[in-house]
Amino acid sequence: MCIMAMAWRAHRRWQLILIGNRDEYHARPAAPIARWAGRPGLIAGRDLQSGGTWLGVSEAGRAAIVTNLRGHGGPRSDRASRGALVTDLLAGDGRYGDAEQAALEDFNPFNLVLVDGASAHFLTNRPAPMRAALTPGLYGLSNGALDAPWPKTLALKEGLLGWLTGGAEQPERLFDVLRREDLPDAGIAPTAPSDAPDEAAASPIFIRNAIYGTRFSTIVAIDAEGRGRIMERRFDRHGAQNGEDGIAFRWPD
């Protein structure tokens, strides 16, 4: 997952709105969102190469999303899968199921946002492992620091804010924001190169590229009563939509 925006406890109707695009090599196999057998209550897509996920929810009251982090070198094959960290945190079990105890240094560079009940946290492992509590508000994250003012991050946050202040109806309308291919003039382009050589240094929210591009767009919408829905659209190497799913769930009161 390479870009996301989140409104957490920032609207009277919605306790969580989380939107994001997963940018990845088209050759890397992945499965659509589904309920996972063997991990009760976990709903997420699945990376079929490493077995974990990039974004998901748990009916235990958790949501998590991970992005790669630029500027610290390419990925090392001897590191644990970052998707395993997301999966364990969502399930609340496994080797990395405890956010306070998980060995963040086991992974290639990452940023991760975790919502767990009434709390939200930002986790990263570069330049050193760090866990920080998040206050209610609007956040944006790509492959740099949390809320770094990259043009596409600012554009995604602006789109989410516009939806929240424009009636906050029909969360699926946020797919239009995730589909934007223009690059705004505002913001500061990243200075560090991507670990994916086919990704431009400054790219739009939606990346149309036959080798490395946007594969999944996902929306998580959970209202104040805990009624939730996770929605996903999938795209081929030409940027054309080739699938869509939605799964309803409920968080504990």
Rank of each mutant, 00 (worst) to 15 (best):
S217D: 00
D182Q: 00
R13A: 12
I17F: 03
R13K: 12
N68L: 08
R12F: 08
G137S: 01
G117Y: 01
L42F: 02
T124D: 05
I219Y: 00
G140R: 14
C2W: 04
R39W: 10
I222Q: 11
D195K: 02
D47V: 08
P136R: 04
E100Q: 14
L42G: 03
L138R: 07
L42S: 07
L156I: 09
L123W: 07
A84S: 11
T124Q: 14
V220W: 03
D116E: 15
W251R: 14
T87S: 14
R46L: 08
A27I: 01
H72T: 03
N209P: 00
M231S: 14
P151Y: 00
H72W: 12
E181Q: 12
T153A: 04
A63W: 03
F175H: 11
A168C: 12
L69V: 03
G94A: 04
A44E: 10
R250Y: 06
G137F: 09
R76H: 13
V113R: 02
A84F: 04
F249G: 12
L154H: 02
H238N: 13
D106C: 06
A34Q: 13
S58Y: 10
S58I: 13
E158I: 07
A84E: 14
D253G: 07
G92P: 07
R237E: 06
A168L: 09
A133F: 13
N68W: 04
R234T: 13
T53F: 02
R179N: 06
P171G: 10
G94Q: 09
P149Y: 09
L141R: 01
A37D: 11
D182A: 00
R28Q: 01
H11S: 10
E172I: 02
E199V: 13
V86I: 11
P171A: 11
N125G: 09
G45S: 12
H26V: 03
D23P: 13
D176S: 15
R62W: 07
T124S: 15
